[in-house]
Design a binder for these strands. Structure first.
Lengths: 118, 118
DNA sequence: AGCACCTGCTAATGTTTTTTTGCATGTGCT
DNA sequence: AGCACATGCAAAAAAACATTAGCAGGTGCT
């Protein structure tokens, strides 16, 4: 088996920012136990559907979960979610390695504001 | 060598929330190349000292970096920072494993608000 | 004394998240 | 028709975070 391709700096921040939330971590954990549909997941986690949907959308945007809309035998439209099998190693070095691909406002450009600070 | 102890749910969120910021990631990356003092680091990264200090404080609170105040031979007080050699594997399973120790507002307690949603 | 560096803190401001509320739509069953 | 479930979206309120600006204090050198 080979190591999964390391994320770019931007992907890394997005991933970290997405996982840096209790609700979203719980969602990932819950889905690790198997796929489910929105309403059911909301009941399992004890949060409102509206809130859960927002979190699911962010997780999906970060590519941490994926969804597929299915029609249950009794005609109900249900959206099932499942986790994406991601794997990222977080260490000072892995972070340093991702920095060159971080495009977030890089101050090391024209801006300069030191000197008369005191 | 053995695997470092997995973080608790709370430590995990704190760590993720702390790293989920471009500036802080750059700080970690910069320190990976060796320790430095605040003002120098601010110049290297091209950001204000005030801003850097705030970020350093958060990184330190999360235990990702540590500092030691030193007096340079010419009498200047300088605060050196260095990275903590952390290592966390981020996968659906590692996250699920940390959930039982996540104390952030756990809806699955007394609260109950389903039923008349529509 | 005045300048160059170093550190630290806070109040105020701007921005971005997070959560709630409310409304719309659709199917099946009684 | 009315109830139970499912989905989706968006505006508005609340809370958390990021950044700036300004002030304080200290050492050494010219």
């Amino acid at each position: 088996m080979k190591t999964p391709p390391p994320p770019t700096g931007d992907e890394l921040v997005l991933m970290l920012a997405t996982l840096a939330n209790p609700h979203r971590l719980r969602v990932v954990a819950a889905l690790t136990g198997g796929r489910t549909y929105v309403s059911q997941l909301a009941r399992d986690l004890g949060i409102s559907r509206a809130l859960l949907q927002v979190h699911l959308k962010k997780l999906e945007t970060a590519g941490l979960v994926s969804a597929q809309l299915e029609i249950s035998p009794d005609g109900k439209a249900m959206k099932f979610y499942e986790v994406t099998p991601f794997a990222v190693q977080l260490t000072p070095d892995s972070i340093a390695a991702a920095m060159p691909t971080l495009t977030a406002a890089d101050p090391a450009q024209g801006r300069d504001g030191e000197g008369s600070d005191r």
